[in-house]
Design a protein around this nucleic acid. Sequence first.
DNA 1: AAGAAGTCCTGGGCGC
DNA 2: TGCGCCCAGGACTTCT
Length: 275
Amino acid sequence: MPELPEVETMVRDLTPRLDGRQIIGVDAPFVGIIRYPEYEEFRRRVVGQSIVAVTRRGKYAIIHLASGDLLIVHRGMTGSLLDRSAQDPPERHLRLVLHLDNGRQLRLDDQRKFGKVYVLSSSGEERALPWATFGPEPLDDSFDLATFAETLSRRTALLKPLLLSQRVVAGLGNIYVDEALFLARIHPERRAGTLVADEVRQLHAAIRTVLTAAVRGRGTTFDSYMDIEGRSGSYQQRLRVFNRTGEPCPRCGTPIVKTVVGGRGTHYCPSCQES
DNA sequence: AAGAAGTCCTGGGCGC
DNA sequence: TGCGCCCAGGACTTCT
């Protein structure tokens, strides 16, 4: 599940490899991965373009083209963007290939087809950018405690699905929401508006702490996530509750519990994170 | 309008 | 051993 740390790792790795390169061709073994525009126009707007920057917003990677267009990639659940040579054998679930002017290929491999690719003008006039409704970047100064507190106070939703929504904070997914709530000692089924000031402060800090450490560890790998060279991240070794059902809580020893909240598997310590 | 539920997709794991 | 059912989840759509 590529969340902010996994996408940030990918963007940092891609930047020196893609900066200044020209895209000389496109193949789409699964054309449905391209959500906008229609394939022929997508090709026309991508082929021949030089790459001027690679950035990130939430879980979206953004390849900036010289034309001003943005080539936007979301890896969904199982997508990996790989830096390969033309001689490397095709991946089992290869969905999109960008041919570069140095003989390399940028390949999107995505078993479950939840990945998405767009080309959009940066103005947002052509079509709303995917992150138009997103909340702040949690590792930027724009993720301000007072605003976060104000937003939570107005909401009645369960904390877990609210934090997954991208509208309050961008970039969190199932793994790091569970980890942040554990660190903040807050139950995932608390209603957002019921948090007291100290709990909001703990949660705000926990989100930043967890994401910062995960970026440092180059993300979490369970099954399909890999970096652009096909290597694993290391943060799975440091997860405290996620995927640790029945194991002792690292703080108090109580077995970690797994439940379903908002339709998603949710891990927490029933002792440290009281409802 | 916010919140909740349904939908997509595939392969691994499990039960019989 | 083998078949088929169920589950995982990001984010969009649909409903209440």
